[in-house]
Simulated scan of single mutants.
Amino acid sequence: MGEHYFAERPDAATRRRSVDLVLPDLHLRLDTDSGMFSPDRIDPGTRVLLETAPDPPESGDLLDLGCGYGPIALTLASRSPQAMVWGVDVNQRALVFAESNAQAAGLDNVRFTLGDELDPGLRFAAIWSNPPIRIGKAALHDLLLAWLPRLTPGGLAHLVVQKHLGSDSLQQWLEGQGFPTERIASRSAYRVLRVAPRTEGRTP
Rank of each mutant, 00 (worst) to 15 (best):
A189Q: 10
D64F: 14
V85F: 02
M1C: 15
S188H: 05
L26Y: 00
F37D: 00
D55G: 09
G155Q: 03
R93Q: 12
R47K: 07
R111P: 02
R150S: 12
V96D: 06
I184W: 04
A94H: 11
Y69E: 05
Q103G: 01
D43K: 15
F124E: 11
L65Q: 02
A125Y: 04
L30A: 00
H158M: 09
T32M: 05
Q82I: 12
R202E: 03
P120N: 07
F179R: 02
G201E: 07
D40F: 11
L140I: 13
H4E: 06
L63Y: 03
I184H: 06
D61E: 08
D55R: 06
D31P: 00
N91G: 01
D11C: 09
Y190D: 04
R93L: 13
G176F: 14
T32N: 01
W128V: 12
I184P: 08
K137I: 13
G70Y: 07
R134M: 11
A139L: 12
G121Y: 07
Q92N: 07
D64M: 14
A189H: 07
D11E: 15
D40K: 14
D33F: 15
T46H: 06
G45F: 01
F124Q: 06
S188V: 05
S38H: 13
A104Y: 08
G166Q: 04
Y5G: 09
F6C: 08
G68P: 06
R16W: 15
A7I: 15
T75Y: 12
F97G: 00
L74D: 04
I72F: 03
G66R: 04
I72T: 00
E3A: 05
T32K: 13
I133P: 02
H141V: 15
L74F: 07
G155R: 00
I42L: 13
R194T: 11
T113D: 02
L148Y: 03
V161L: 12
R123V: 15
T199Q: 13
L151A: 12
V195T: 04
Q162W: 02
H4G: 00
T203F: 15
R29G: 00
W86A: 01
I42E: 03
L107T: 08
P56T: 09
N101C: 01
T199D: 01
R47C: 12
S167W: 07
P120M: 09
I133A: 02
R123L: 05
A77G: 03
A102Y: 08
L30P: 03
P54C: 08
Y69Q: 06
A146F: 04
I72P: 07
P153Q: 11
S59W: 06
G87D: 10
